[in-house]
Amino acid sequence: MEGLFVLKPAALLAAVWATAGCALLPSDPVRPPVGLRQDGDVLTVLIPDCPGVTVVGAAVTSRSSDATSGLPSWTATGFIGEVRNGVALDTRDWSEVDGSYAGLAAVDIEIDTGTSTYGTVVEPPRDREDLESLPVGHYDVGGEVVEAAEYFDRVADDYPCPTPT
């Protein structure tokens, strides 16, 4: 069988991950989970509150049944809120906002700190109505309802902040 190229299972898996954009190298840091809630029409995201790290932007993109679909529906830059209060995806806590995510049932959410990107997805079976029914001060963290203070304690224990350079 001249000219036949055979990949070993590990090489095949690496090739599939790399071409699918899902390569996770041993040096890639494990990202902490994020918390999510909705108040009215506003989604709020909890991310780690690390000293010296600021939120620089956020995006909400419509999600179809199989993947993210196209350009973001909502973007923001210049976060002026407090991370410990959650990153509210509204007009109040940002210096520049463009677009709207009103009416979108399934979305991808990304928060950019310039050094890290935190993200989550809202799609069935979890929906935005579920996030709106959470008790005040509580967030959905990977399907578990957690108070904000408990989230920050867990993240600090399991995902320590990087040392500022």
Rank of each mutant, 00 (worst) to 15 (best):
V42E: 11
V45T: 08
I47E: 05
S65G: 14
V30C: 07
I80T: 13
D28C: 00
T44R: 08
D39E: 13
V60S: 09
L46W: 14
P32V: 04
G40A: 07
P51C: 09
C50L: 09
T77K: 10
V56Y: 07
R37C: 04
V60A: 09
T54C: 06
T54A: 11
V60G: 00
T77S: 09
S62R: 15
S64M: 07
R63H: 03
T61H: 00
P72R: 10
P26F: 15
R37G: 10
S27R: 05
V42A: 07
G57T: 11
L46I: 04
T44Q: 10
S27F: 04
S69F: 15
G57V: 13
G81T: 00
S65E: 12
P29C: 01
C50T: 08
G52M: 05
V53C: 03
V42F: 12
V42T: 14
A76S: 09
V60E: 05
P72M: 08
L71W: 13
L46H: 11
V34E: 02
L36W: 04
D66H: 04
G70R: 14
V56H: 03
W74V: 09
T68Y: 12
G57I: 03
V53E: 12
P33N: 11
V30M: 08
V53S: 07
P29L: 13
L43S: 03
G70P: 06
R63T: 05
S69G: 06
A59S: 09
W74H: 10
T44P: 06
P29F: 12
V42W: 12
V34T: 09
T77A: 05
S27M: 01
V45M: 14
D41I: 12
P33C: 06
G81S: 02
P32M: 01
Q38A: 09
V56A: 04
V60K: 03
D66V: 12
V34I: 15
V55Y: 07
I47W: 01
P51E: 06
A58H: 03
A59I: 13
T68N: 12
G78C: 08
